[in-house]
Design a protein around this nucleic acid. Structure first.
Lengths: 346, 346
DNA sequence: TTGTACGCGTTATCAC
DNA sequence: GTGATAACGCGTACAA
């Protein structure tokens, strides 16, 4: 008994020969769109494919068809629950549409992001999804040109949470959400606030801080500049900002608003490490409602952003026929979730 | 001034024509390995490519070269910090090696996993990484055959945390880690334990429970069967198991060991919701040391698994020349991390 | 319905 | 060094 030694994968050619039909017939039987092939032949081709363990070569199909079936996803940090939740939604939707998703990580570096987009264009993905907000006023021109080149050659671009670029985008209503949160906290009796924000000019961060201020202003309150601490948009950034806040003195602060949950949770750890009792000594609120928000102690008040749905929404936008009239922006609803980290005051 | 309307991307052909050289020369100048091309021509080609906004078509390159430069990553759930951390390491290493990583999600479904591997083979990835443990004794034959077919046609397979299949694997030393944890907890004065595990026959879960029992046995203690609650391998599974444990009564239990951190954290929430004080009334320990383990209250005692490194290690294994003598398994070190969730007893 | 032949964008093997 | 030209694996007019 001879053991077959298929040092390289079977091709459509092999299948056709094995089945005794032409290449074209084999192609139609296996991957053809309109099923116009004799059942007898069809069966023989399928049997041959099975026997030879044939798998269509996606690259070759892409070349022949002139189009791939991949969607490229660009995130700042896949280990961050914010992005991994979005990725989860993207992957789920993509797989449902028989699309493969490729992933790249910017590490929150604009130059790196641009370089990645340049390279990714070589993949010729059907759609390119950029998650994670960028800096306002940065040299977006280069990125925009690159993305424009991509769409002009038939690709679809979807931005998540960065409506400053002229492409389809899934917007997060950051300003409105933060405003609603502030109003709710005022209702609960809070009057004196501090905030933990990301780097200045980081769009998402700015929007959330601004929205929060809007809400306070509506109640005749405000958030002094020296009550806003800036730090990296990460858990460790939040921890660091928490310590900074403590150093500045928090005696007259009732509540700290962090512009995202990972920072809020980092800050909570800093507070706890310093012996601050939560929420008795200090209340904390975040933004995003990542899944661990309810597992910290006290459970974190936040603004719920349906992150998985955001990813799904991005795919939906990408798969829909492009409108004639320019770019569309789909805004996902957010909702204030009050938990024990912000108990009613007095 | 006429506005160019490049309805489709520029090809190497276009570049060659624009530069006034042959296709071959253009190819060599742009993507050739051995640089044996006149500098003058080279410059003209590069200029033409720049002008035409040319990007090499990866699919076409793959067909011509007979090999892609992608690595396929299969995870159970990308939103789970365990997997997203591993993914982070994989992506980082892959990008350093100029490889694109594609991602697929099994949702912890063996059939789905098999189906995905079948499809993924069509991508002809250079390497296929399977993360997430499977069930022992399951019909691994089909999967093994599929993976075997992949390696036989030149692909590399790396398994993470599932050494039951004959391929290169990154092992986690689960048994040893859990044993060390148990020993440490006994040192701290704990004597009566319960455990929260995943489904029976789930390899990682079993190994960790077994290892934990080993550690207890070494001290003359044991973990009765009725003290082991099984639930889905997720945060909600942990919450559910926590409630189940409470329903069974925890009066004579001092410490609950959950086989992973997400379950431990879910259980902690269940305990807290039921008014159980942690760690005064009950101590808890987990496994993995995901980043939120230090942010819950009390901070969670656990076994540190360098997840990002695990991903990097998988890539390293995949990129290294295959040994003659069969499969290699690289075991990553783990380390017990004692935090406040398990204070010294008495 | 089936087969032939060409094209997809790129690399690689030759001669020159 | 450079340029035709044949691959690579597949889809698809077109003709049969």
């Amino acid at each position: 008994m001879r053991v077959p030694m298929p040092r390289s994968a079977a091709t459509l050619h092999d299948v056709a020969r094995e089945a005794g039909v032409s290449l074209a017939t084999a192609s139609r039987a296996l991957n053809g769109s309109t099923r116009r092939v004799n059942d007898a032949y069809r069966a023989r081709v399928l049997a041959a494919a099975e026997k030879l363990d044939y798998r269509p070569n996606f690259s070759a199909q892409a070349v022949a068809r002139g189009a791939t079936s991949t969607v490229a996803l660009l995130v700042a940090d896949i280990a961050d629950p914010y992005f991994s939740s979005i990725a989860s939604g993207v992957v789920r939707s993509a797989e449902a549409a028989n699309l493969v998703v490729t992933m790249a990580v910017t590490d929150r570096d604009n130059d790196r992001e641009l370089a990645l987009v340049r390279v990714i264009r070589g993949q010729r993905p059907r759609v390119l999804i950029l998650a994670g907000s960028r800096f306002t006023g940065a040299d977006d021109h280069a990125l925009e040109a690159e993305l424009r080149g991509f769409t002009e050659s038939g690709g679809r671009v979807v931005l998540i949470s960065q409506h400053e670029l002229p492409f389809d985008t899934v917007a997060l209503a950051n300003r409105e959400g933060a405003r609603a949160l502030a109003e709710r906290l005022v209702e609960l009796g809070y009057r004196r606030f501090a905030a933990i924000a990301g780097a200045a000019a980081l769009r998402t961060s700015d929007d959330r801080v601004d929205g929060f201020c809007d809400g306070l202003r509506a109640a005749g309150l405000d958030l002094p500049d020296d009550r806003v601490v800036r730090a990296p948009f990460t858990r460790d950034g939040g921890y660091e900002a928490g310590r900074e806040l403590l150093a500045r003195g928090v005696d007259d602060i009732e509540l700290v608003f962090a512009v995202n949950d990972v920072m809020a949770i980092g800050a909570m750890s800093a507070f706890r490490d310093a012996g601050v009792r939560l929420p008795e000594d200090l209340a904390v609120a975040g933004y995003d409602d990542i899944s661990t928000a309810r597992d910290v102690t006290p459970p974190l008040t936040t603004v719920r952003v349906p992150l998985v749905e955001v990813g799904e929404c991005a795919m939906r936008l990408a798969l829909r026929e492009p409108d004639e009239g320019g770019d569309r922006t789909e805004t996902v609803a957010s909702e204030v979730v009050v938990r024990e980290s912000t108990p009613p005051r007095r």
